[in-house]
Every structure is written in C-alpha cells, then in structure tokens.
Nucleic acid binder design. Structure first.
Lengths: 209, 209
DNA sequence: TTAAATACGGAACATTGTTCCGTTTAGCAA
DNA sequence: TTGCTAAACGGAACAATGTTCCGTATTTAA
C-alpha cells in the first residue's frame, strides 16, 4: 500500500497502530513469506496453493494467515514490494549511467517486472475490490519514476521530447506481457526497439505524421 | 461447438467418429447441461462449482464429466453455442428490419452477449491452451456476420463507409464489458451512440480528422 | 423379449482454502 | 540468570470443490 497508510490484515498496520515493534521472529517470517510468495507467484501464478508458499517460507499456514488474513493481502503486499523496487531502481540507474542508457535499462527492468505478472492482470480486473487500489499504486509510483528518467534524457538531448511517461509505460507493459517461452528475448528486443525509437530524432522533436 | 469439427472430450466427437447417433437420453442431458451451464456461468462466472451446474441440469456430476472431461470443454461449448446464436441473429435481423435498424439491433444483441462474459475474458488470456482456439472462433464467426450488416447499411446509404467490421466489433465489446449494475442501460446507450456515429455523414464518408 | 452396450448417479477420493487451539518463543522484569 | 506473559507459531481439523470410479439403470437392436 502507499507508504503513509497500511491496511488491516497487514502486519505493518498493527505496528503503526500501537507503536509497538513486531517481534523479531514475526518480522523474519514476514520477510520469508514475501520472498516465498514472490517466487511461487512467478512460477505458478497468483492462484498457487497457500500451503506451497508457507512451506517454501518454512512456516505453517497459520502463520501465513496471521500475517495475511486474505489472499489479496499477500498478493497486494508482494505486488507493492515489487513496484517499489522497480520505482526505486530509477534513481539508482540515473546515478550510475548516462540519461539515455539509464532510461533504456530501466525500461528493460520494468518489462521484466511486467513479465512476471501473468495471471495478476486477470485478478486486477476481476472486480474484486481487494485489488482495486493496486492499479492506482502502480501508476502513482511508476509514472513519476519514468518521468524523471525521460526528462533527464530529454534535457541531455538524447531522446525526442514528444512522448509522455504514461503512454510509454503502457506500451512497454503490452510488450512485456507477450513474453513467451518459445521466443526468448523477444519482449526485450521489442522494448529496446521502442527506446531506440525515442532516440530517433533526438533533440529535435519530429512532428507526428 | 463449431459445426465442422468437434474436439476430443466433446460428445459430438464420438458421434462423428463412429457414425453412431448418441443415445436419446445422452442428447437430452447434453442439452440440459449446456442450458444449465449458460445460466450458472452468467450468474457466477466460469469458475462456478461443477456440482451446481450438474444439479441445475438435473444430472449427476459423473454425467457432466462424461460429456465434458475438462472444464474448458464445457466453457468452450457454451461459448461457441452463444457465438453461433449471436452470429445467426444477423441474417435474421437483416431479413426483418431495414439495414440500419438491423445493424443497430444486432449491435445491442452483441453487446448484451459480451456483458455476460465477465470472467471469461480472464480465462481467455490466461494462457491455458484449452481456450486458445476460442478467440479465433469468435472472430471467424462474428466479423463476417457484422460485415454483412455493415455492407447492407452502407449500400442503402444509411451509414458512412469508413469503418471496418473488426474495429467496430472490438469497440462495442469494450463498451459492452463495462456494464455495471449501478448504471443500468449505460452500455446500451453507449453502443447506440456508437451506431448513431455511423449514421452521421451517411452516404458521404466524412474524411477523418 | 432379451441381452449387450451405453449412460447415469453419486459415493469416494484428492486438492486446496480457512479456522482454531495447544505449544513454543521472544521480550522483559526481577 | 531466571521466570513470567503476551505474542506468535505450527499444523491438525474442517469446509468447499474438482475428479474418478463403479454398481445400477436405461436404451437400443437383434
């Protein structure tokens, strides 16, 4: 969830509510559950058996349900954690690489993130209110992150200036989703192509056809 | 299912294979199952309990599994049956109404069909190969049906000529999907608006902006 | 009418989500 | 260090649902 407020059923909630730090083992297990869920979701989708996640984390199912009373709580927590990691990668890449290169690398990072989300898209649009806030979080975190990279690259004259962050994010998501096991590297190449398109006509915005 | 070829696990398959007509009770139960599944899917989505469908059809679960060994077989059969009904409605409407009116009525029919398919969209794109042929069937049946109506209306000078059947089909699907219980009639009005858009500038295609 | 083939029904089994409670452990005070 | 308490843990038990299997009933054809 957003940084300022956690929701019931999430451990951070209780901690913020009562000002009492969670017990050490509880913190450890929470992290283990998120790690395990990330791996299992990627391998088997968001409908993977709860027991499998608990087993991979080395805890009992009771512990899992203590931390995440509803399945959506776990899915949301994993999702947000990954969105955050992806968003945070933007300034890190910007600090290490030239603007254009940072942008290209971040787009690959983002597409790879999307590729692991097969099955989640369906859940997101399933009408389940538990998931309704996730798309907003997604937008709120990633659009500014990308915009920073874009602006820097534009300022450096490395890319054209006539593309918006949100449309680029959406386009890359479409490309990232079509990752297939029978076409390794396809999505990556397409995203790279997209970024090369930005480079074409750099510093002198080509009028749209 | 499709008229020309059934697939393994579907009863019509065995019938076509061995040239032997199915037993009378088997035919009856097959129809009852399809009717029941249609109703239950519409009410509870394609993940509705198998027992509920069997009960509604007045048969045992064993009978259901005999006819449809996999859940996808049942979903596909119901889907195709409805696609066929929708496609067949086009010539029927064309025979009864003026071209423009027939088109308008069919678009409503189609949007209503889409509205009942919540949840199926997710299954369709889930990557399950059992569903992979359904979108093709959908296109193959409905695009020609709509094209007939469009061509007739264009020939009669009732609508403009610069819209393709597949794009119109897709647009109406988007509108049909957003049917909400809190906004009765919303999707219908939007589809009607879309059709009125076709009427604007009839017989003298307005150049696109 | 009778017998074989076919289909039926639902009990039984398997898998997975969810709850509950006895047991264990971390944190703290004496 | 020791003992206490609240918190957390683990997994058995329960519930819901998908799937299989086989004894029984029905249809069909000779």
């Amino acid at each position: 969830m957003s940084q300022e407020s956690a929701e019931p059923g999430d451990d951070a909630f209780r901690q913020a509510e009562k000002g009492k730090p969670a017990r050490a083992d509880a913190q450890r297990n929470l992290g283990a559950l998120l790690d395990a869920a990330l791996a299992v979701f990627a391998a088997s989708g968001v409908d993977a058996p709860v027991r499998e996640i608990a087993a991979k984390a080395g805890v009992g199912v009771g512990t899992l349900y203590r931390h995440f009373p509803q399945r959506a709580d776990l899915v949301g927590a994993v999702f947000r954690r990954e969105v955050d990691a992806c968003a945070d990668a933007a300034p890190a890449l910007a600090a290490e690489y030239a603007p254009g290169e940072a942008l290209a690398r971040w787009m690959q990072r983002y597409a790879a993130f999307i590729a692991t989300k097969r099955g989640l898209a369906g859940a997101l649009h399933s009408g389940d209110p538990s998931y309704s806030c996730l798309p907003d979080y997604f937008q709120a975190r990633l659009v500014p992150a990308l915009r920073q990279l874009l602006d820097a690259a534009i300022a450096a004259g490395e890319i054209r200036a006539d593309v918006e962050a949100d449309e680029l994010l959406n386009a890359a998501a479409r490309l990232g989703m079509q990752a297939r096991e029978d076409r390794p590297g396809h999505a990556e190449r397409m995203v790279a192509l997209l970024v090369d398109g930005l480079r074409y006509g750099a510093a002198s915005a080509i009028p749209r056809p």
